[in-house]
Every structure is written in C-alpha cells, then in structure tokens.
Amino acid sequence: MGRRFTSAAPGAQGTSAEPAGPWTHDVHWAAELRSAIGVASLLLTALFVVDAASGRLDVTRGLLWSGLAFLVFAIMLPRRVSVRPGRLSARGMLTTGTVRTDSLVSVRWCDGVAQRLVLQDTRGSRVEIDPTVLTRNPAMWHVLDADSRTSIRRGTLRRGTTALRRLAQRIDRETAHGVFKVSGWR
C-alpha cells in the first residue's frame, strides 16, 4: 500500500508536496456530540423547570441558565480528530489544529485529569488530542503509527518514541481485551 503525493503546480513557489489519501475520522464523535447536546439540554430544562416552579424565572435568570448550559456543552464537546497519510487534524469549537505526522518533532504524553497526546511537527504546528480517540479507532492509529515511523526514519522525531510506545502498548492491551471479551474469555 503505497503513499501517493500530489505535486505542486509547475512554477509555484514556496509550496511543498501535500500528502494525498482519504481522511479517517473518529467514528464515535457523533455519539459524543449527541451526548454533549443531551446533557446541556437536560441541564437547561431542569434549571428552567425548577425556577419556573419556584416562581423566580425571569429573563435574567433564563439567560444565566442558558449561558451555563452552553458552557457545559462547550466543555463536553469533543474535538473532531481526522487523520490521513501525512496529516492529523483536530477541530474544536473555535480552533482547528493540523500537524504533519510524517515530519513530527515531538510527541508528549500529558497525564492528569484528562490525558492528552501532544504532537508537534517541524513547522512548529502543535495539536493536542485525547489518546482514547486512537485507541477506539484502529484505522486512525495505523496511519499515525506508519507516519511516526517515517518521522523516526527521517530523523525528525527526537522526543516522543516512549510516548508512542506507551500508546501502542495501550492500544494492544485494549485490542486484546476486546478479542477476549468477544470470544467469551474474561
């Protein structure tokens, strides 16, 4: 399975070859979007009902509750992660970040309340993604893994092989767990 590149138009200056290929998207993103909408809607409805029942609902409180529900939605809204050979893109509510995955400089694992994988390329572009997106989408992980190996071969990826190895082990563990679960082993 070879990688195809489109070349820049003759005479175009300052452009480089762009990777071609279909985008692979997070298959669970739509369900997470529906969950975020559902939770925010439920919260807004509950707040309106409680305030209306107590007789204290007015325009100011309605706007306050609407703002609170929107804030909950914004916090719960997952980034839309897409991968294709040579690129990873993560689109949030207000921003979109894209990195060249075939020319990565560093990959960091940030632990905490919400784990993050931080990817940075040779152009200085940086993207943060939730590693579970790659765990749940083997096709996305396959593309990123192949491109990170290209970065290692080219010598651009100097920091981050440990984070990638850790992620690969996590994905292997999750895959094995899923196989055992499906086959009836516990």
Rank of each mutant, 00 (worst) to 15 (best):
L144T: 10
R154L: 10
A146H: 13
L157C: 04
S151G: 07
Q169M: 13
I171P: 12
L144F: 13
T161I: 10
V143R: 12
T162W: 05
I171C: 07
R166G: 06
W141T: 05
G155N: 05
T156A: 04
W141V: 00
V143N: 09
R153I: 11
A168K: 10
R149D: 07
S151V: 07
L144S: 00
A163F: 08
R170F: 06
D172A: 15
R159K: 09
R159C: 01
R149F: 04
R173G: 01
A163K: 03
A146E: 14
W141A: 05
W141L: 05
Q169D: 15
T162C: 02
A168P: 05
A163I: 05
R149S: 03
V143I: 15
R153G: 10
R159Y: 07
R153P: 06
I171F: 12
R170W: 14
I152L: 10
G155V: 04
T150L: 10
G155L: 02
L167R: 01
V143Q: 12
T162A: 02
T161V: 14
R154N: 08
L164T: 09
R170M: 11
L157A: 02
T162P: 02
G160K: 02
R170L: 13
Q169Y: 07
A163S: 14
I152R: 12
D172F: 09
H142S: 14
R149P: 01
A163H: 07
Q169H: 14
T150P: 00
I152Y: 06
W141E: 00
R149Q: 12
H142F: 10
D145S: 14
Q169K: 12
R165E: 15
R158S: 05
L157E: 03
S151F: 08
W141Q: 04
R154M: 07
R165D: 15
L144M: 12
R170P: 07
R159F: 06
D147C: 03
T150H: 07
S148R: 13
R158K: 04
R173A: 08
A168E: 12
A168T: 13
S148P: 09
D172E: 15
T161W: 12
A168Y: 03
R170T: 11
L167F: 04
R170I: 01
G160F: 02
Q169A: 09
A163L: 03
T150A: 11
R159H: 10
R166M: 10
G155S: 03
R153A: 14
A168M: 00
D145E: 15
T162Y: 05
I152H: 06
A163G: 05
S148D: 11
R170V: 03
R153S: 12
D172Y: 10
I152M: 09
R158L: 01
L164H: 09
S151N: 11
L167E: 04
R158Y: 02
A163N: 07
H142R: 15
R153V: 14
R165T: 14
T156C: 00
W141C: 01
R153F: 13
L167S: 00
W141K: 00
G160E: 01
R166W: 02
D147Q: 00
G160R: 02
L164P: 11
R173I: 04
H142G: 12
Q169C: 07
V143A: 13
D147L: 02
A163M: 07
I171H: 11
R170D: 08
R166T: 13
R149G: 06
R154S: 07
T150R: 11
S148E: 13
W141P: 04
T161P: 05
